[in-house]
Design a protein around this nucleic acid. Structure first.
Length: 436
RNA sequence: GGAGGGAUGGCCGAGUGGACUAUGGCGACGGUCUUGAAAACCGUUGUGGCGGCAACGUCACCGGGGGUUCGAAUCCCUCUCCCUCCGCCA
């Protein structure tokens, strides 16, 4: 969410940004509603001030009545009744104005929630993903002296993935990991979490996988991704599409005291996505599925540090790629591919020789104040100072199925077996090779 | 799931219709005193909106929402959360 004052005072700048994003948002409507709201507010406040003052007088008057007798008391009683009638009308007027104001405010809030974040000045202008910038590539794609297989062949062949049974029990885009497949994912998860906790300074958290609707708005998932989440209508709870949602809301409606920031969290949660918008795409294998695990990094930081923290987070994600010895590259999103909440965003992609494509294994964003404003997360820069909105950053570190794909496809050997990456061997109980 | 009790400022806690539009205490901060500190004493101490260059003024907020009333922290309804007891359960 953008600052209403900012929209009012920098309208042209906001509209220009929207054009770069190729997004539409009801800016003029917002300005109109804001104007209306402030007019109504001034009116109701004037009336309230009057009522407050008169109410106080009426209290005094009533005490006076009790201390008086006879004719004088009669007079005072009359005055009291007159004032009461007058105030009754003021009360009705206040009520009417406030009803109007509630309507205006509801519309205003709804409109504000539809406005995407503004891109940072360092973001290249572009139309769509073809204008994204490849920042750097690390590691040489391995040369095979045989035809590398895609994971959807390797998985079943080695008894790591069972597609049929996944579909049988839950339908398309569900899968089952079996035996060393399940173990490999568990090893990978444990290793990634350990690295972030012990080397990168994150605090591990275990989170609810179902959240209230407020959380979805707070993290900026709603209104845009409403169609894409699973939910339970009976309790009005939503299955998390990413750990970013519950983590953002950890500090919702809080004012963090001086010295608290930065807060760096890491969590592994399942992610549930209906993938309605990509129906029919990537239907083979486990690249795009309805349920997957993801290790997520998240930071709450002071505004002046957020861009350094973003670069650091990118390095943390790269450390995983490097540790696994998988060729990868960093891509910077252009304005047209930034999405709804990010002011700046990088993707980390791993090379998958079997499918022959770069797989997005991480997406790292600086949301600046956008989520903080929605979720009302502030900090106090120093004792006695006014609270300010924090900056929030999120990034996968990393998404499990796609890293599984990359490992299987990069580490496959001529005889169909898969070597276990060095760093994972201790987590695999010493197993160095997965074979039939 | 059943029965009962709660929710007030950073914390504790008073307040059952108007009198300071939240008493008092603790903590924190500033000051006086002191070589320094403690104690004592004095003062300050929430969030947000609107208006104003500003000092400041004003309005709202006593878990959330609604109602009664000229006027609600206070009365009524409702929701959420917490606590106690009972039942069930990995």
């Amino acid at each position: 969410m953008l600052d209403l004052n900012f929209i009012r005072e920098h309208t042209d700048e906001v509209k220009e940004a929207l054009a770069k994003l190729h997004a539409v948002a009801p800016i003029d409507e917002i300005l109109k509603l804001d104007e209306e709201r402030r007019t109504l507010l001034a009116e109701s406040e004037t009336l309230r001030a009057r009522r407050n003052a008169v109410s106080k007088e009426m209290g005094a008057l009533q005490r006076q009545i009790q201390q008086t007798q006879g004719k004088d008391q009669e007079k005072l009683r009359e005055r009291f009744a007159e004032t009461r009638e007058e105030m009754r009308q003021v009360g009705e007027r206040i009520k009417a104005i406030e009803e109007q104001m509630v309507q205006v405010e509801t519309l205003l809030k709804k409109a504000l929630l539809e406005v995407p974040n503004m891109p940072h000045e360092s973001v290249p202008v572009g139309a769509d993903e073809s204008d994204n910038l490849i920042v750097r590539t690390e590691g040489e794609p391995r040369q095979f002296d045989f035809e590398p297989l895609p994971h959807w062949e390797l998985g079943p062949m080695l008894g790591l993935i069972d597609f049929e049974r996944g579909v049988k029990i839950s339908g398309t885009r569900f899968y089952v990991l079996t035996g060393l497949g399940a173990r490999l994912q568990r090893a990978l998860t444990a290793w990634m979490l350990d690295l972030h906790v012990m080397e990168h300074g994150y605090t591990e958290v275990y989170l609810p996988f179902m959240v209230k609707q407020d959380c979805m708005w707070g993290a900026g998932q709603f209104p845009k991704f409403r169609e894409n989440v699973y939910y339970d209508t009976e309790d009005d709870l939503y299955l998390v599409p990413t750990a970013e949602v519950p983590i953002t809301n950890l500090h919702r409606d809080e004012i963090l005291e001086p010295g608290t920031l930065p807060l760096r969290y890491v969590a592994c949660t399942p992610c549930f996505r209906r993938e309605k918008m990509s129906a029919g795409r990537d239907t083979r294998g486990i690249k795009r599925v309805h349920q997957f695990d993801k290790v997520e990094m998240y930071k709450f930081v002071e505004p002046h540090t957020s861009y350094d923290e973003l670069e650091a987070m990118v390095r943390d994600a790269e450390d995983i790629c490097r540790g696994l010895g998988i060729p990868h590259r960093i891509v910077q999103m252009c304005t047209g591919d930034l999405g709804f909440q990010a002011a700046k965003k990088y993707d980390v992609e791993m090379w998958a020789p079997g499918c022959g494509e770069w797989l997005e294994v991480s997406s790292l964003s600086n949301c600046e104040e956008f989520q903080a404003r929605r979720a009302n997360i502030r900090y106090r820069p120093a004792k006695g100072e006014k609270p300010r909105f924090v900056h929030t950053l999120n990034g996968s570190g990393l998404a499990l199925p796609r890293v599984m794909i990359a490992i299987m496809e990069n580490y496959q050997q001529a005889d169909g077996s898969i070597a276990v990456p060095e760093v994972l061997i201790p987590y695999m109980g010493g197993i160095r090779e997965i074979k039939v």
